[in-house]
Write a protein that binds this DNA or RNA. Structure first.
Length: 480
DNA sequence: TGAAATGTTGGGGCG
DNA sequence: ACGCCCCAACATTTC
């Protein structure tokens, strides 16, 4: 037992339960000092929507710590300098954190670990973010997996690295630490003038309690129709856990265990539960891809795609961002993203396919927009996802798989309810014509109060022609 | 975790 | 009764 305090450095693990670093700190018996450092100097600093979430998540974490008598210390700046300062200031004998896996982060953490260790501080790091570390699962030939299905099989076979989750601590050894902390509101994480996040509030509850509630609601109810329902943006059959997972308000192990428990109780069908867990493991797969391919966020994994004849189309990109492409399912998705900080996964694939293949705009441009606007923006998921749609990733959709936005709309939003919610100017269109208003007879448009080119745009590209153009571009890079 | 083009089959209308 | 055409409904191939 040591009287020198134990520092817990919170990062992408803004929770108290099932937090190995925090658990280790408690085990020392020393007073625990929780710390969060906001480092904007890093590449891939959080985008606007993530900053909104981060603010509220930190507020929630700080509140939970308060209940245990601990004060969350907030500091802003380069962790490489601030953490050693804090260690010195507090005379900490231990520092604990859960590992990060993104390029840049890893180097910082490694250096800190060795310099602090050299200075006589005991540093220990843990896996708090993944079911398995990227290096724990290898193919038969010893390399990392590059195809999802075998990865998923191997992970399912191996199971999570830890068997049990740890409950929320009820007690924490603390000491009145006289350590200065920033005020959260001074970080300016919240939007102001205008408050574009006002519609986020009714939709989301950032923080550990909100995460737990989202998981419980999903497993008790919405997961029933997950297998097919998860593809329906007009329904509420997805877990909406993504932002909670991105900020580590809940661990994948907690999700895994809770789902397995419901499955063995027979309350969740095997088909729905397995499908959901496989989606959870897409996240693991993406982390793996990024861990072994640092350039994933910028550079196509398949090199030939660097030569793809992309177009510079500022107007097209702007129309896509604003949800004014004239394709209702695309516009609904882009507006859902802007309004709520989130987009249904099926629609993410549709809008991404549209940007890349119909507009021939670089996937990196879409990735950047998602990064800024998604509350669940996650470097691994976002870059792997965009590469997947673009067809240049490891286990990517073939390039010629080009979504038809009309067919997709008719298939997955058959009544048009999703479009009506987010594209209100089409709310009086009948289901039959809502996904292709330009093909609707004049009297139908009149009756719905839609004037193409005025109240709702004409399609900015002709899909059939755009599809042909995209495939011709593919021929070019295939020939090299 | 597509879509479009092309091919095949089978039923019904019709001369 | 028969062949022929049409076309919907699938199936297969191709991008």
């Amino acid at each position: 037992m040591s009287s020198r305090p134990a520092l817990v450095w919170f990062r992408q693990d803004l929770r108290l339960a099932d937090n190995p670093a925090l658990a280790a700190a408690r085990k020392t018996g020393a007073p625990v000092i929780p710390v969060y450092i906001f480092d904007e100097s890093l590449a891939h600093a959080p985008g606007g929507a993530s900053r909104w979430w981060l603010h509220h998540s930190l507020e929630a974490l700080s509140g939970e710590l308060d209940k245990l008598g601990a004060k969350l210390i907030l500091r802003r700046g380069a962790a490489a300098e601030i953490l050693p300062d804090l260690v010195e200031e507090t005379n900490a004998g231990h520092v604990f954190w859960n590992r990060r896996y993104f390029p840049g982060h890893i180097e910082i953490d490694k250096k800190l670990k060795s310099s602090l260790t050299d200075a006589g501080v005991e540093v220990e790091t843990f896996n708090g973010a993944l079911l398995r570390e990227p290096w724990e699962l290898k193919t038969g030939s010893g390399g990392p997996y590059r195809v999802f299905t075998p990865f998923w099989k191997a992970l399912k076979q191996a199971g999570p690295a830890r068997a049990d989750t740890e409950a929320n601590p009820r007690k924490l050894e603390t000491k009145k630490a006289n350590v200065k902390s920033d005020k959260l509101k001074d970080w300016g994480l919240l939007p102001d003038k205008p408050n574009w996040a006002k519609d986020f509030e009714p939709v989301w509850t950032p923080g550990e309690a909100g995460a737990r509630e989202a998981l419980r609601d999903f497993l008790n109810d919405d997961i029933g129709d997950y297998k097919d329902g998860r593809d329906r943006p007009d329904k509420d059959y997805t877990s909406r856990l993504s932002p909670h997972l991105a900020f580590g308000e809940i661990s994948p192990l907690q999700v895994w265990q809770a789902t397995r428990a419901k499955m063995s109780e027979g309350e969740v069908s095997d088909s729905a539960g397995e499908k959901f867990l496989s989606e959870l493991c897409w996240r693991e797969f993406c982390y793996c891809l990024l861990f072994y391919n640092e350039a994933l966020p910028e550079t196509p994994l398949r090199e030939e795609f660097s030569d793809y004849p992309w177009r510079d189309d500022k107007k097209g990109l702007a129309a896509w961002r604003k949800g004014e492409t004239g394709y209702p399912i695309v516009d609904a998705g882009m507006r859902q993203l802007w309004q709520t900080g989130w987009m249904h996964n099926r629609v993410r694939m549709i809008v991404a396919s549209f940007l890349i293949k119909d507009l021939l705009i670089r996937w990196q441009d879409g990735e950047a927009w998602f990064w800024d606007t998604l509350v669940d923006a996650d470097l691994a998921n976002n870059s792997a996802g965009w590469q997947w749609v673009a067809g240049c990733g490891a286990d990517a959709a073939p390039y010629f798989r080009i979504f038809n936005p009309v067919t997709q709309g008719e298939k997955f939003d058959p009544d048009g309810a999703y479009v009506r919610e987010f594209v209100p100017e089409l709310k009086d269109m009948p289901a039959k014509h809502i996904h292709a208003p330009w093909k609707a007879p004049d009297d139908v448009l009149d009756k719905a109060g839609v004037e193409l080119g005025k109240s709702y745009p004409h399609p900015i590209v002709d899909h059939a022609a755009a599809r042909k153009r995209a495939l011709e571009g593919y021929e070019k890079i295939k020939r090299g």
